[in-house]
Nucleic acid binder design. Sequence first.
DNA 1: GTGGTCTAGACCACA
DNA 2: GTGGTCTAGACCACA
Lengths: 124, 124, 124, 124
Amino acid sequence: MISIDYQNRKPIYEQIVERFQILIIQGILTPDSQIPSVRTLAMDLSINPNTIQKAYALLEQQGYIYPIKGRGNFVAHNEHFIQQKRGNFFEALATLFKKGIEIGITQAECTRVMEAEYKEVSHD
Amino acid sequence: MISIDYQNRKPIYEQIVERFQILIIQGILTPDSQIPSVRTLAMDLSINPNTIQKAYALLEQQGYIYPIKGRGNFVAHNEHFIQQKRGNFFEALATLFKKGIEIGITQAECTRVMEAEYKEVSHD
Amino acid sequence: MISIDYQNRKPIYEQIVERFQILIIQGILTPDSQIPSVRTLAMDLSINPNTIQKAYALLEQQGYIYPIKGRGNFVAHNEHFIQQKRGNFFEALATLFKKGIEIGITQAECTRVMEAEYKEVSHD
Amino acid sequence: MISIDYQNRKPIYEQIVERFQILIIQGILTPDSQIPSVRTLAMDLSINPNTIQKAYALLEQQGYIYPIKGRGNFVAHNEHFIQQKRGNFFEALATLFKKGIEIGITQAECTRVMEAEYKEVSHD
DNA sequence: GTGGTCTAGACCACA
DNA sequence: GTGGTCTAGACCACA
């Protein structure tokens, strides 16, 4: 369920954080269910445990997961972070539109891209 | 015309590169016009000449500017890179929409953001 | 595998870039294999790490290598750049013949040089 | 008769030197004929007189021209430098073939380029 | 004065 | 340990 894209310029720990965020928001990982241990996931992805550690620390800090000492990490039940994610998205979108406007991209061109992406989904 | 945002996580040299790209694409810097010398710009922004050097080297490599030895750097006349920039934008936009879809953002919500940004521009 | 010619007027970083290009094109450095770290190579050649950094940055930009943060740099698998290199060669060759023609060099003389070089190789 | 290519990475003074060498070798500039003064040529090409000065100094040093104080610079009559030029050419050609061999260019491919260039000339 | 190369050395993020 | 960014400063070729 977690995979790493080494071509991606984003740091690995960030990729892991985002992947878990999406799985939790989409409800694929349900509240109170256990997530893989640091060691297990590190082995599975064959990356440094420090990296997983860092990702889990961030997820905990953001309220996505909670630890139980000696047992492991579990998905929190908190609807709050969906709003955070949505906020981040809208901010990123607005920033991108600003950049597009700077280089002369028209609204019509953006609409075309948007429709293409959303149509693709409705076919699934 | 060039300013640095130290809050920005982007490296200084990248900020400079992007700023020049926009000024050139928008036609504010016209072909064959001279851009500030490495030393001058370094002084103006009070940063190290090496950092400017790096930015200029990238701009040259991407075809935005060309150097004349002993004279300085000049804006190239190449319509080619506008297309590159546009391509990058559309790719980034599509990627962002994909992310939005993953967290349940609707097309209507994206449209609202888009219209807000484009209306702001038409008011200028 | 990498050596520097201080007599050569070419900058050190360029010599390093070209050396790696050849090693990669010849398949001596295979795709996904790791190349020496910036610091290691700098120590081995007893030059400044920044110079290696610059060479690696260029190789990355040209698609010859790709970095994994915190791990190192690796040879990319891209057949594309062999064509680039070939193109560059043919262009350089044509330019040189034009110069030869200007000073009255005959085709027969060029052929003689060519055969000498290619014979030398077949003896290896 | 002299023109400068600013796109060319070669320094201007070198371009001027080479251009004169060719004109002299080809006999277009005949022995004892006067070449333009430093100032005149600098004006015509609208470049720095220092640059012409440097070019003429090199040409004199290589025996292509000789100065007469108060009168100007004149073409020398020396068949010697044609041999030099030829030597340089053959050396450059051999070096280039070596590079081509390194990246797997065949002799047949080189021959094709050579024939194309020489055919083009015979049509003139 | 102009850009280009290089060294020495610091500091940071990431794994 | 690994690469990436940046500063300070020197030295060079070129115009």
